[in-house]
Structure formats: C-alpha cells, structure tokens
Design a protein around this nucleic acid. Structure first.
Length: 829
RNA sequence: GGGCGGGUGGUGAAAUGGCAAACACGAUGGACUUAAAAUCCAUUGGCCGGAAGGCCUUGAGGGUUCAACUCCCUCCCUGCCCACCA
C-alpha cells in the first residue's frame, strides 16, 4: 500500500465530523418526545484505549441511530462511562496515578477515539458514574432499597490471601492462588451488604415472557440462572434433640433411598451437631478445611468428594430409619437449605460420596428394562423408573410418585411443598476504595441508619492510601469514618465498604433523559415518555448479570412508583466478539488491533465498513487486516463511480422519451431491488453484512452500464444517476463521511442525514419474464424462462417440452409435479 | 463440571425447507507501466473430460420429506459465560 489515497478520506472525515457537531445532528430536546427512538449502547468501562473489538458495538449503534434518523425518528443516542472499578485501583496500588485521574484521562482518550470513528452522540447528556453528581443517586437507590427492606447485611465468604492480607476478586485468584504472591487463597467470612434480588425471582422469570424482542439465547440463559425448581422441604427430626433439620429436594420420590444427610460445612448447625462427639476436634478441623476451599471448585460437580460424620442422626419420617448426618464439601450453603437428603443410588454426587465413605446404597427406583443391583452399579440411576423398596408406593411410576409422596408429606406435616431458585441475593459490598460509598452509618445508640437524602452524596475522599490491608482503604481515613448519626447527632461510624459497580450500571439509562437534575435521580414524567429503551445494544457477556440487575432495579423503581414501566429494554441486540488469532482481543494476549493506526491509514469509513461487513453482527468474527483493504478498495470504487456519473452528466436537459434498453431496465430494477433488500436487512435483524454485499452488487452493475460504450443521453443519465444516488444513500448509515461528501459531488444539497430513507418502486422490481428452476427427482436439470404469472397448465407444458427435461423424463411416468410459484418445479418420476 | 452458542471452499461468509458457495479476501494468468502501486479483464469447491457435460460436496452417522446447510435423533470437535473483571 502506498501513501497515495484512493480518495481524500483524511480531509473529508474531519470536515463532516465538525459539521455534525456544529449542526447538532445528534442533539435531542427531550421535551419533544413525539416519534421518539431511544437507541442505547452499553456504556464502557474506561480502560486504557479502545480496540476494534469495542468498536463493533459503537459502530452498530451509530448505524442504527443514523438509519432511524432517516426514518424520521427523533433519535436519542447518549453515551457515558462506567467509571468505577477494580483496574484503576489496582493500577494505583502498583504506584500509578490516582484512580480518578487515570479514569478521567482514559475517558478523554476514548471520547477522542469515538469521535474519530464518526460515532456521534448527544454528549451534553454524558454520565460518568464515578462523579458525585451521579453516584449521589446510586446511593439514593441504595437508601430506597434499604427503606423497603431490600438491602440487608449478612455474613458471607470472600476470597482471602493470608499473605497480602487482602480480599481478592475471582479474577485475581489464579489456580487457587493469589495472582500477586501465589499464596493459597482461603475463604474468610465478613459482614456484607446484599440486595434481595431473590424477592423478585419469580417476576424476573415470568416477565421474560414479555420480552418478545430479546434474543432467545439471552432469555434462556437468564431463565437457567434464576433456576426455578419445585420440590419439597422436609423437616427431619434430629435424634435426641428438639431441633429439626430442613432439607430441600426435587426428588421426593427417592425418599426411601436416603442413606445419609449432607450439610454444607458452613451450615449453622454443624458446630452444634459435632459438639461432644468422639473425635470432635478432628471433625472440626476438616470442616474448617472444607470451608476454606474456593467456591469455584466447590461448585464443580467433579470436585473430589470429602466429608466428615457429625456423630448424629435424623429420623426418616416415612420409615423411622436412622440416617447419619455428614458435613460434605460438595454441598453449598447458598443453594436450597444448605442441606440435602443424600440418595446415592439416584444422584451421582451422592453416589461418589457413598462409595468413598462406604455408606449404603439403596435402590428405590428401578430401571424397567434393566433391573439395578446396588453393589454392581457404576453410576447413579437418575432417570425415571418404577418405585421399589418404597413401602406402599411400590410399583408406582416415579414421575407419579413425586406428586403422591409430596401430598403425603404435606398431609402428615413432614414437610411442605416449596419452590427454590438458584438465583442468590446480590452481594454488593466491596472492600475497596474506587466505588460509590455505601450510605450507611453505625450509631452506638440508634444502630444501623441509612444516610439522609439531604446528606447525599457521601463523598469519596480523594487523599487515601492504597496499601492493601484486606479492608476498604476508607477504614483508615478518620475524617471519613467518624461522623454523626443522622438521627440523634451522636458519634457514629460510616460504613467503609463501597458498592459493586454493577449497581452503578443498573440504572444509568434513566439518568440520560435528565442528566443534570440536581434534586432527583431523574424526571419521572419525561423518563416515562422516553423509556423503555427502544434498542439496547451490547456484548453477549452481559447476558446475565448486568441485564438481570437492570431489570431488577427497574422493577423496584416501578414498585415504588418512580417509573411507570417494569422492563427497561424493549429490543435487545447482543453483538458477537471480534476474535484475533483465535482468541478474544485483549491487552494481556497482545492481539489487540488499534483503531487509530487503521483510521489514519484507511480512514474511519473503511474501518466501519469492514467491521460491519465481517459477518453477521450477532456472531463472533475473526479480524483480518486484509479484509480492511478490501473495504477500502470498495469505497475507492464508489468514489470513482460517483465522479464518473457526475462527469458524464449529459448537458441536454430537454426531455428525451424513449424505451429503456435491456441493460438500463436491468439496472433500474437492481436499484430498486437493492433499496428493498437493504431496508429489509436492517429492519429484519441488523443484517448489515448482507445489506452491504447487495450494495456492492449494485455498484458492480452500475459500473457495467458505465462501461458500455454509448453516447449518454438524459435517459441513460437518469438511470445511472438514480443508481449512484441510491448507492450513496443506502451506504450513508454505514459510512457517513464519504456519503455526505459524495452527496455533494452528485450535486445534491443539505446533509444526507436530513433526507428521508428511500422506498422502492414496486413496479420497478417486477420483471415480465422469470427464470424457473427445473428439478427431476430433486436434482437440478434445467431452467426455463416463462412469463411472469404463467398458469400452471401452461407452465407444465413448457417444462415438459424442454429438450433436456424430455431426455430425463423420456417415457417414464410423471408421478408428481410440484410447483413452487416463481421459483422452481420438481418432477418426480 | 454446569449453562449458552457455533461447525459450509485456501479465508471471512451467503442461502433458515426449494438453484449450495451470493458478496468479499486471497491466489493464478493477462492488460496498463521503465518498474511498482493503484486500476481493469479472466479463472478460482473437488474429481473425470478436449469440450458439451457428468459425478461428488455443508463436522460424522442415521431419520422425516417430492426436496435438508436448514427440521428430528445419536456422536465428535470448538468458542464464550459462570455471581468480587466489566
């Protein structure tokens, strides 16, 4: 590639970017909500610099915004930054800049990059989540949740590095060790704040049904994450005690096969149960060891099963058998009751555990085809079957027994029917500096008190030390901690944990409507006009957490009548990742492609076009620098095409009436077919790659007509001019700079984005003669030309008189003659 | 391990029950040029054939159908996410 440019992209791109900003093309007056269209892209975390993988999201959003503008919508396209987070704090610990300085710096870089891409926003509405005027309202939402009983404190485990004496994020745990010093990570119990998202589990699940325009795969992931299951909660009597032990099971049909009880090592009864038993000390030691295993490996079904007998028993209510109680590492406190009735014959994890500790395996559901033998089983039988060894339920089908035994338990008050969710409450406490402080005060007299609205925001002090201590750096900042109780004015201490950044991002889409409001998080009336968001665009990696949390907060704000809708995003589009050398683009893998270099070499339009042409936007795509050159050459061809069409413009303006030639007619049809195809591709699910390829076809065909050596008269000039204009308009959302410039070259006025998107002329797209494909026994054998709208008998006659078909049919009986109108004929012989 | 995707030419891909490989990249040959770049033209899934044409081909195997890349079943491979990265 030489320095010589195929077209002067460097000049025109800056020129038009300035033009759009000066004219306020993307500026929106929210009071004018008629015909509104809220086009939202997930706001980014301000990491060092953007790569072309990030770009895909913004380019897609920009295309949608520009397209909708041309469809006469009043488009709101705002942008902001999810600016709190771990990386900035880690950099500060390593001796870099203060998190605020580095974050604001990165934001500056990213805004410059977005501008270079020609991605435009209404920057007057920018929200930055680490600034007090924003996090004041994040804290306000916390207070509202607290007042409504949806924010509470409880003990929970964190990853802990005993050597660095610090809390580690999952990301900072590498193969069970600390990423800095490789010391084995342990689990430490801390008092932490939670949001009670589980109170919304049922609604979050049910309302997935309302989200017609969300990708199925995202809805499926959310559904599985919420993980609703119906079952029975059994109250087991503990032998020699007045206490009961609750176990949840979805397989009550296997109750007669329960041969032990397994408790999570964290279960509140564990210490009590082992106290006084023989070997109590050793038992406690192994329980503590199990508690220290990482949560990730504990949740792995392949974990090496480990456990310890507590020395105590429960009574099985159905047959009064004594069942030993064990503590086991594969039971998680977070799910169900933190205790299970273990049925080794019919649950694989229980089966493995029973084999290790030589616990009995009792078959209670038999395989009707292949009777089971407990001693010879190699794995648990988890399918349905016929009840055996189950007293009066013997012989019943297990799927029926699930219902019958549940009824029986309810009747005799052995337990209750119960619904469990995998979804757990949302742990929002972070023992870190760079986040929104949790607005809670601990008063010696009044207890735990939420900060008053008039005292918000609880400001994050700037001059703190970042040495890792395992506690929030705020804890050592006396001026922050020591405060007065908002109620009694007595001495009090502030909460020093900060909030998970997902809290910041669970409501930002509401702030964009009225970003500068001082006395409220948002204006309810206007928000109700502009939301739900018409189109949300972001990465598939947010399919669960961010989208679920945003739905939760939206439902909460709906319940407290702050907003009038209970789902935030009407249409969701999740784009795929850009892959380079077989891996996700990331700084650590060293495979990032910087947009700056590419833009200076080929221009932003080329980078945009390639990013859109690379493949279906919802799928992952492999980046290729070669492909970029292809996009660049195409834009060069379009540029020359517009120049040629303009220079060939016939001088004669008087009307010349004549019929179009075959080629002219064909280009006219192609022009309108392309308008139709591009519009359908965009509307029908963002098929930008095929939209662009159809424009390429139109360019090729226009060039073909230009290449025909003939004197240009106004008739041909018009056909060419219409084709070139269509090319430029249809390309404009994708490559806005070159489109604006060519629009001028073609002699048109005004910004192309003030134009109405074209519609195709129905009469121009119908041909009088169509080609039909002829198959014999499903194999392509011939094709014939027939008049449009031919009757079936005439078509049959024409087909059977085709010479090639005659050869194939040749005396054999036609058994079936299938006609797919306007497409194909299949003759079955 | 669990959950969710994906598998089509040398490459990115198109076709979502009806012509497999549109569009583009790369490659090869040619034109232009002192030369290169750019541009333009031709060829480009595989096999057989001088050609006309024929046969085969969408990860593997089976099924449904007049017709399957597309729907169903079994298997293989692969990517992403998994609650403190955002």
């Amino acid at each position: 590639m030489t320095d010589e440019r195929l077209y002067p992209f460097d000049k025109i791109e800056k020129k038009w970017q300035r033009f759009w900003r000066d004219k306020g093309l993307f500026k929106v007056d929210t009071d004018n909500y008629k015909n509104k269209y809220y086009c939202l892209m997930m706001f980014p975390y301000p990491s060092a610099a953007l790569h072309v993988g990030h770009g895909r999201n913004y380019i897609i959003g920009d295309v949608v915004a520009r397209y909708k503008m041309m469809r006469s919508f009043n488009v709101l396209a705002p942008m902001g930054f999810d600016a709190f987070g771990l990386p900035a704090e880690n950099a500060a610990i390593k001796g870099g800049m203060h998190p605020e300085a580095s974050t604001l710096n990165n934001i500056k870089t990213m805004k410059r990059q977005l501008g270079q891409w020609g991605v435009e926003y209404d920057w007057n509405r920018e929200v930055v989540s680490c600034l007090p005027d924003y996090y004041k309202w994040t804290q306000w939402i916390f207070v509202k949740l607290y007042e409504n009983g949806l924010a509470y404190k409880k003990k929970a485990f964190v990853n802990w590095c005993p050597s660095c004496k610090t809390v580690l994020a999952n990301e900072q745990v590498v193969n069970g060790g600390c990423e800095r010093c490789d010391t084995e990570v342990t689990q430490k119990e801390l008092e932490q704040w939670f949001f009670k998202i589980t109170a919304y589990a049922e609604r979050l699940l049910m309302d997935l049904g309302k989200l017609e325009h969300w990708p199925e795969r995202v809805k499926t992931m959310q559904k599985n994450w919420i993980g609703r299951s119906e079952g029975v909660e059994i109250d087991f009597k503990i032998e020699g005690s007045a206490e009961t032990l609750k176990c949840f099971t979805t397989r009550i049909d296997t109750i007669y096969g329960a041969t032990f009880i397994a408790l999570a090592p964290e279960h509140s009864l564990v210490e009590k149960l082992v106290s006084g038993m023989k070997g109590e000390k050793e038992a406690l030691k192994s329980i503590i060891k199990m508690r220290n295993e990482s949560k990730i490996s504990r949740a792995d079904a392949n974990i090496e099963k480990e456990g310890v007998f507590t020395g105590r028993y429960v009574i099985n209510p159905v047959n009064s058998e004594k069942i030993p109680i064990w503590a086991a590492n594969y039971i998680l406190m977070e799910y169900g009751a933190g205790a299970i009735m273990a049925v080794p014959a019919h649950d694989q994890r229980d089966f493995e555990f029973a084999r290790i500790y030589k616990l009995p395996i009792k078959v209670v559901i038999d395989d009707p085809k292949n009777p089971l033998n407990a001693e010879r089983m190699k794995e648990a039988y988890v399918q349905e079957g016929v009840m055996v060894n189950s007293d009066k339920f013997n012989g019943m089908k297990s799927e029926l027994a699930v219902e019958k035994i549940a009824d029986y338990f309810v009747e005799f008050k052995y337990g209750t029917r119960s619904v469990q969710y995998k979804l757990r409450d949302w742990l929002i406490s972070r023992q870190r500096y760079w986040g929104a402080p949790i607005p809670i005060v601990y008063c010696q007299r009044c207890g735990t008190i939420a900060e008053l609205e008039k005292n918000l925001p609880v400001l994050l002090p700037k001059d703190v030390g970042f040495r890792p201590t395992g506690e929030s750096p705020l804890k050592f900042y006396k001026e922050f901690v020591n405060t007065e109780c908002p109620r009694c004015k007595g001495p009090a201490a502030r909460e020093t944990d900060t909030m998970d950044t997902f809290v910041d991002s669970s409501w930002y889409f509401l702030r964009y409507i009225t970003p500068h409001l001082k006395d409220k998080p948002f204006d309810t009336e206007l928000v109700n006009k502009w939301l739900p968001v018409d189109q949300y665009i972001g990465g598939i990696e947010h399919a669960i957490l961010h989208l679920l949390y945003s739905r939760f907060i939206t439902k909460f704000l709906y319940d407290i009548k702050m907003i009038g809708f209970d789902e935030p995003f009407k249409n969701l589009f999740t784009q795929g990742m850009i892959i380079k050398d077989g891996a996700k683009m990331s700084k650590s893998k060293g495979n990032v492609v910087s947009p700056d270099e590419l833009i200076s070499k080929y221009g932003a339009d080329t980078v945009r076009l390639y990013t859109l042409f690379i493949g279906p936007p919802e799928k992952d795509a492999e980046w290729s620098d070669r492909g970029v050159e292809g996009a660049y050459r195409f834009l060069g061809r379009v540029w020359r095409l517009a120049e040629k069409v303009t220079s060939h413009k016939p001088q004669v303006t008087s009307k010349v009436e004549r019929k179009l030639t075959k080629e002219e007619e064909s280009l006219r049809r192609k022009t309108h077919l392309t308008i139709k195809k591009v519009t359908e591709d965009i509307e029908g699910g963002f098929h930008f790659n095929t939209a662009i390829s159809s424009i390429m076809e139109l360019v090729n065909e226009t060039n073909d007509l230009l290449a025909i050596d003939a004197e240009l008269d106004p008739v041909r000039g018009n056909v060419l001019n219409d084709a070139a204009s269509a090319v430029v308009i249809l390309l404009s959302p994708f490559v806005p700079h070159i489109a604006e410039e060519l629009w001028q070259i073609l002699g048109k006025e005004n910004s192309i984005f003030k134009l109405k998107w074209p519609t195709h002329d129905k009469s121009a797209v119908t041909a009088d003669v169509i080609t039909m494909v002829i198959q014999v026994n499903g194999k392509l054998r011939s094709r014939i030309e027939v008049p449009f709208g031919i009757e079936e008998d005439k078509l049959k006659e024409a087909v059977l008189s085709d010479t090639k078909i005659k050869e194939f049919v040749h005396g054999r009986a036609v058994r079936n003659f299938i006609v797919i109108p306007k497409k194909l004929v299949n003759i079955v012989i």
